[in-house]
Amino acid sequence: MSAPFPSDLLVILRHGSHGTNWLREGLDAALVAAAFGRGVSLLFMGEGVTALLRDQQVGPLGQKGTSATLEMLAMYDIETLLVEEAALERFGLTAADLMLPVRLLSAEAIAAQPGAHRLVLTF
C-alpha cells in the first residue's frame, strides 16, 4: 500500500442543481459522513462544476436548490473542494465565478484521487 489515505470518502458530483436530485443526494451523503466524523473530499466533475456558481436561486415552486447546503460545508469541516479544471473551462468559467474556494485539478491530478480515498461514491 502507498501513502496514507488523506481522506475516508471521495464524493464525486457530476450534476448541477435543479435539473436532477443527484447533487442534493450526493451532498447529503457527504454531510452525513462528515457528521459522523469521516474525512470527506468533494470532486466536482463535468456539469457538476456549475453546482458552485454564485447567484443561484430557489426554483419557481420553491425548490430549494443546493446553494444553502454548499454554504454549510465548512461547518461540517468539508474543506477539500476539488474541481475539474477542464470542465470549468468547457463552461467558460473560472474559479472567480464560484461561491467557495476550490482547488483546480488537472486530468493527471484527478486520476490520482479515487486511489487516494478509502471509499468513492459517484453521483
Partner: peptide, 11 residues
C-alpha cells in the same frame, strides 16, 4: 470521458 480521466495507469 469522466471514467477515463479518473483512471490511474494501472486501473
Amino acid at each position: 470521458q469522466q471514467a477515463l480521466v479518473s483512471m490511474a495507469p494501472e486501473d
